[in-house]
Write a protein that binds this DNA or RNA. Structure first.
Lengths: 375, 375
DNA sequence: CTTCTCTTTGTAACCGGTTACAGCGTTCCA
DNA sequence: TGGAACGCTGTAACCGGTTACAAAGAGAAG
């Protein structure tokens, strides 16, 4: 590895000049700059990032916190891959890299049954590695840990978790607006008895989607009997159970808004088990637009999140703070209604009874046939 | 941030002693060691990783190369999340972290239409950041770039790509064995006309699965007419098209082994479009065990990869090389046959014609009802 | 009582950059 | 023409660790 000292010697200048060529080129005369650049290129010079980080206390790295909760081994982030793509592209545009912090979890927290994310360990990492800031990705039960991170004063931005702190912000989808749009879509299709399967009450997207549901119902002057709000946990089985409960009601809904696609799929399964057809007997609309949504039968109408966009927004937010800016206000990215086939087109067949067993199993529309409409 | 100098002063020892307490505790007398440890704890001392990396030329970081191919925006790694979980847990057990390298891709390579992964850029990163080694995750077309990495002499381990180099190895599933098991399962169910939908010929898992198919067919003394081997690209539409072609043959197969679950799902769709029932008219078996496999109707019988295990194996391999060991031999992790419902139990109904339209649409078995059998 | 070995410790160089500060030569303006 | 201002450059301290080497002290062997 060549060093700036070798370059300095070869060029007959001081190390300070060489360093300036790379960091404040404008302060070096053009001739010296050019010769230094040429020699550096010839020697295939690469600055030693450890030395830079030591001297400047900045490493060019952003920490990524994404801890798997060992109590929920089956849990999967609904759009991690797209999120990472967004993060990576926005960070690389500014020369930053993502450091996936790996700890074995906090024994203390584990003991009390709390989240496995360990704020102390991650704050340590951040200082040890001179990380510019942190991006926090929830694993379903990390909200308390993230709140602690946010208090640390380190720049951090959480995804889908509302945190507050001196240099903290968060980014999420416009869950309220998306949920409202979902319900409006059901209302436009002629439904009036609309139930919802919501998520855990401590989960921010869940409560926001519930709020959007209530708002849209109120706007449409539709009642929301308490039994029309069933709590799930975002997993498929909970959606299935919720739908069973809804269908067992004396006055069952004709349409269901599920706060997550997994639960929506569960709901569709439960409907099928009960001998009901989707969407003719009961319509189902989801949220997330996971890959699976386009593949189930019937393909699921749902609200698509701007998954990569959330990553980009998170990256930008953390970079803003790293560069000394004020914490940006929380971002709520617009969602898109993706119309597929689990909600029928308009008023008409709603509630029409249909004998079980005669479910249509026609050709499944391909994803490209689904129409979209921006929010 | 406290430094070892402050600790040294407070303890009345030299900085060398303090450093040794943390790195070679056995060379320090017990009394000094204990007082240094106590003071360090009281001052909440955290070693400066940049300084350590500078002095030792080791950063405790492993690079992760996972470049998204911009020419295939829809491409998703079938099991990235599980892979990362495995990588992370194995690395954290040894105190290593994962650095996701982000480049904007190589303009030169892009110009010639080659992969977007840029070997030069990543070799640079590795040296600049003192990375111990690299883990290479394919984005569908990175094999050439990975081959170049492998030649660089840096420790690296590729996932699902066969690379060779002085300090390179790879880890993948036992694709040959898995494919053989898949075909054996079909043979045991009474099938004799068994076709395969394979992947791109330059893709290692694809060619291995094809080899396993051929081996099992030969073992069972079954013929493989050339038209029974259809090339797909691992995407669903290609599986659909392949199945259409197979069903149009004068002597169509009664069972199909698809080299990937996505293609298997496409094949099932094509069968349904053609008015055939799965598995009674045509059986389908896949490979991967993606989430979707359990959810389609009928649920897909497939070969499950040990997804997290591949991550763990990759991490162990790279750590072995980082610590100076010889490159481990390539690892081929065993796969598991997951029996669901897209292949019927045994000989009997195979090939029995059945009028279209009378497809059974009974309850979908839940994943927990599927039986498994280790390979 | 030497001499040798082993353990423990300290001194100081080093890793490879960044940057405060000072110095020097020009130019500009009063 | 003196002096301020400015542009460019070099010297050297510094970031916070690691570690080669030397030395001191203790114990063992002769």
């Amino acid at each position: 590895m060549t060093t700036i000292r070798e370059i300095a010697e070869l060029c007959g200048v001081s190390v300070a000049t060489v360093s300036r060529v790379f960091n404040q080129p404008s302060t070096v005369s053009r001739e010296k700059r050019e010769v230094v650049e040429r020699v550096a290129r010839e020697l295939d010079y690469r600055p030693n990032e450890s030395a830079r980080a030591l001297a400047t206390k900045r490493s060019g790295l952003i920490g990524l916190v994404w801890d798997t909760d060992h109590r929920r081994p089956g849990w999967r982030h609904p759009y991690l891959q797209e999120l990472l793509i967004g993060l990576k592209s926005a960070l690389s545009a500014h020369g930053y890299h993502l450091l996936m912090l790996a700890t074995s979890g906090s024994a203390a927290l584990r003991a009390v049954g709390a989240s496995l994310a360990d704020p102390v360990a991650y704050v340590n990492m951040t200082r040890r590695h001179h990380l510019g800031g942190l991006v926090l990705i929830d694993s379903g039960s990390d909200a308390p840990a993230f709140a602690a991170f946010a208090q640390s004063g380190l720049p951090c931005v959480a995804v889908d978790v509302a945190v507050q702190g001196p240099r903290a912000t968060y980014v999420t989808s416009d869950n309220v607006g998306g949920a409202r749009m979902a319900v409006q879509h059901l209302v436009a299709a002629g439904h009036r008895r609309i139930a919802t399967i919501t998520g855990p009450p401590h989960n921010r997207p869940a409560t926001d989607r519930l709020a959007g549901y209530r708002a849209a119902m109120a706007e449409a002057d539709l009642p929301v009997p308490p039994e029309y709000v069933v709590v799930g946990d975002f997993y498929r089985p909970s959606g299935q159970a919720a739908m069973r409960a809804l269908l067992a009601l004396p006055d069952p809904p004709t349409a269901v808004f599920a706060a997550g696609d997994e639960m929506a799929v569960g709901a569709m399964l439960a409907a099928r088990h009960a001998g009901l057809a989707v969407p003719s007997d009961v319509a189902v609309i989801g949220f997330d637009d996971i890959e699976l949504a386009a593949l189930v039968d019937p393909p699921l109408t749902t609200l698509a999140q701007d998954k990569a966009g959330i990553g980009v927004a998170a990256a930008r937010a953390v970079l803003t703070m790293v560069h000394g800016g004020e914490p940006p206000v929380p971002a709520f990215l617009p969602t898109k209604l993706v119309v597929r086939a689990s909600v029928s087109d308009g008023p008409g067949s709603v509630g029409a009874a249909r004998p079980p067993g005669s479910l249509p199993t026609g050709p499944t529309p391909t994803p490209s046939e689904a129409s979209e409409c921006a929010s």
